[in-house]
Amino acid sequence: MKGIDKIYSEYFQTVYKYLFTLTQDADVSEELTQETFYQAVKTFDRFRGESKVSVWLCQIAKHLWYKEYKRRNRFTEGFVEEMSDLIPSSENLQESVIESDIKIALYQKIRHLDEKTREVIYLRLTGELSFREIGEIMMRNETWARVIFYRGKQKLMSEEERE
């Protein structure tokens, strides 16, 4: 049981941040994080050690999020409204409005990227994960995560130039 407690304390933040990048909802992220560790305890005997524990946990979390997403059928609905709640207020209202518009426009553009690129960008920007961590979570390597992030950024910049 001490091993499970150690895993929980060591990886809770990683799993929570990963889920928050997917859900953009603190309550759902916390609930799914708890469920992730519950499922991990239930299936620990099947963990073969072929990947890092953090990767294994994030894969469980991702599976639970997709299951929750299908249940709620709301992956992108309301995303912009939820993100606008996260934008900090500014002393100058005009600056705040301009800043909000820019962030909303950016997240709207990110939503139109393919799933893997969108996920890498969310993990990097919102989850503040390193490229190495993103690569591990996505069961790839650091270079792959960097390339996907760079290409996604290039797509966003070229779309911005077209407008």
Rank of each mutant, 00 (worst) to 15 (best):
E10R: 12
E10A: 10
Y11R: 07
Y11P: 03
F12N: 14
Q13E: 14
Q13F: 07
Q13P: 13
T14E: 14
V15F: 06
Y16D: 07
K17C: 09
K17P: 03
K17S: 11
F20P: 11
L22A: 06
T23V: 07
Q24K: 14
Q24E: 14
Q24S: 13
A26I: 13
A26P: 08
D27W: 00
V28N: 01
V28W: 02
V28M: 10
V28I: 15
S29K: 02
S29A: 06
S29W: 00
E30D: 08
E31C: 01
L32Y: 00
L32C: 01
Q34S: 02
E35I: 01
E35F: 01
E35H: 01
E35C: 01
T36Q: 03
T36D: 02
T36C: 02
T36H: 03
T36A: 03
F37D: 04
Y38W: 14
Q39V: 12
Q39I: 09
A40P: 06
V41H: 01
V41A: 05
K42G: 06
K42N: 10
T43H: 14
F44S: 13
D45E: 15
D45N: 13
F47C: 07
R48M: 08
G49I: 06
S51A: 13
K52I: 04
V53G: 00
V53S: 02
S54L: 07
V55E: 13
W56R: 04
C58E: 14
C58N: 12
C58A: 14
I60Q: 03
H63A: 08
H63E: 08
L64A: 05
W65P: 01
W65F: 13
Y66A: 06
K67I: 02
E68C: 01
Y69M: 14
Y69R: 13
K70V: 00
K70N: 09
R71C: 02
R71P: 02
R72T: 09
R72A: 04
R72M: 04
N73S: 08
N73M: 06
N73K: 12
N73A: 09
R74E: 04
R74I: 00
R74P: 00
F75S: 03
F75T: 04
T76Y: 14
E77I: 06
E77L: 05
E77F: 04
E77Q: 09
F79I: 12
F79H: 10
E81S: 12
E81Y: 07
M83T: 14
M83S: 08
S84E: 15
S84P: 00
S84K: 15
D85A: 05
D85S: 08
D85I: 04
L86R: 13
L86N: 09
L86M: 11
P88N: 01
P88L: 06
S89H: 10
E91I: 09
E91F: 09
E91P: 04
N92I: 12
L93Y: 13
L93T: 14
Q94F: 10
E95K: 10
E95I: 09
E95W: 05
E95H: 08
